[in-house]
Design a binder for these strands. Structure first.
Length: 273
DNA sequence: ACATTGACCTGGGAGC
DNA sequence: TGCTCCCAGGTCAATG
């Protein structure tokens, strides 16, 4: 479910109900996520105010006066807002209960997500220290990407999904941006021309921005916390479209596996170099 | 330094 | 109906 646009959509939906509010308590029903949820949250959080919510890569940071709760949705995490208490269901692992009565409930069947506590300054947190730039920021541009991938003998798809190079580009949008740029996912970084890199950067930004405008992509079960589905799925060009006609040339889209992730490619439009 | 693989989990769908 | 196998939107850690 969650790629960057889904995280952004989630954050925008929950912010009005959460930001500026004082925390009542946190209920951790199951603490075994990607890393153990620190139990110290139960004593630290009550009476702290969530001053702002920030996104870094696909992590959300709930900033308080003294530190931040860092939340990652993993592969299957969903946050939703409850206006009144209801019995938790399967995989409802965490409730963050605000003093205004709103409950932020975290559901994550596969438990690849994370809830961590980081004291300020957040930038020094080990997970954030090695991260590359945000894909939608000015720092991520053609000059930068050319310098990062120009000598790399690795498929460009793997490279743009590497967090040290650029954060937040997941499998769906990597496939889409490569198709739009007519670049094969297996083409090595070192073989790309500057023009191709310019196109790729442009399309990564474009596809992410468009998806955010649509409220993310609903493939299986993504609903934003306010209950709205994402509408970007209807704009997908190649992702999940094996054997369907390429929207450019009608050649059947093929599915292949690159570095253990599914790629969807038009063999005509995206020849391997 | 770089490339590749394994690991962490559950649920849904396909195929028999 | 039920079993087994394969697949899934992430990414860090370990290995060569």
């Amino acid at each position: 479910m969650p790629e960057l646009p889904e995280v952004e959509t989630t954050m925008r939906a929950i912010s009005p109900s959460i930001v500026g509010q004082k925390i009542d308590s946190i209920v951790i029903r199951r603490d075994k996520l990607r890393w153990d949820i620190p139990r110290e949250l139960e004593t630290i959080l009550p009476n702290l105010v969530i001053e702002k919510i920030e996104r870094r890569a696909k992590y959300m940071i709930f900033h308080t006066q003294v530190g931040g709760v860092v939340v990652h949705l993993g592969m299957s995490g969903v946050l939703r807002l409850l206006t009144e208490y209801s019995e938790p269901e399967k995989h409802d692992h965490v409730d963050l209960i605000m003093q205004n009565g709103i409950i932020l409930r975290y559901n994550d069947p596969r438990r690849f997500g994370a809830w961590l506590w980081v004291e300020h300054p957040i930038e020094e947190f080990r997970l954030f220290e090695k991260m590359g730039p945000e894909p939608l920021g000015d720092e991520f541009n053609a000059d930068y990407l050319a310098e990062k991938v120009g000598k790399r003998n690795r498929g460009i798809k793997a490279l743009i999904m590497t967090q040290e190079i650029v954060v937040g580009v997941g499998n769906i949008y990597a496939n889409e941006a490569l198709f739009m740029s007519k670049i094969n996912p297996q083409t090595h970084g070192s073989k790309l021309t500057k023009q191709e890199i310019e196109l790729l950067v442009k399309h990564i930004k474009q596809v992410l921005e468009r998806s955010i405008k649509q409220g993310g992509t609903t493939l299986k079960d993504f609903f934003s916390p306010d209950g709205k589905p994402g509408y970007f799925a209807q704009e997908l060009l190649v992702y999940g479209k094996e054997n369907e006609a390429c929207p450019e040339c009608e050649t059947p889209i093929i599915r292949q596996v690159d570095f253990q992730r599914a790629s969807f490619v038009c063999p005509e439009c995206q020849p391997l170099k």
